[in-house]
Write a protein that binds this DNA or RNA. Sequence first.
DNA 1: GACCAGGCACATC
DNA 2: GATGTGCATGGT
Length: 228
Amino acid sequence: MGLQKKNLGKELHQAYKLMRQRFGHQHWWPGENEFEVCIGAILTQNTAWSNVEKAINNLRNAKVLTPQKLYNLPLEELASFIKPAGYYNVKARRVRSFLEVLVKEFSGDLERMLSGNINDVRSRLLAIKGIGNETADSMLLYAGRHLSFVIDAYTKRIFYRHKWCDINVTYEELKAMCEQLLRTEIDLLDYWQDYHAQLVMVGKNFCKSRLPECENCPLNSLLPKDKK
DNA sequence: GACCAGGCACATC
DNA sequence: GATGTGCATGGT
């Protein structure tokens, strides 16, 4: 992590207040239940959520949105349902490998799969092919209600833009930094869930691509003074 | 038509 | 350990 700005914690919390003021509480994750959250977490990898919604609706309309039914689906059929989400062949395999563990090791009981020691649960998720850091943390935070901060491309882009981290920061470093500094609220789970959601709002609406400027961004008042 | 999106695994050097 | 590549649809 190296040199860390003094009062960075306060600045990060100020950022939250600004985003929250602009967008309101996001009540994330979008999804009817914990199982949908997990499937959505896989489907949204490098993909716009609007496309994921179509894929999930296909599954819902086909009435296969349960662990056992989804697991029993032939791979090609699963792939055709999730086509709108893109990368449908890889994602079909990734959903399948997640379900394999859920159904075979936990009898389809997602709550049991996600309960217990956070580090153990996280390791179990990361051992599944197709589940990396962000997907695992999304499942932990939004489906498992664990205190596991989610880092994504928007987080890195926004943090770097504001010089809250350097360009080479790793996933684990940024995650540890956020988890260490964002501890002021009473309800940390709600805070971390909404913090990530707010960052996605900023990313989607104001920090597209790697352009240095993002007009009308609620965080502009926090930009480093030399390049504004 | 180009560019982008809430990643990840794998190959290669 | 760092860097490059394939995967694919739909919106702007």
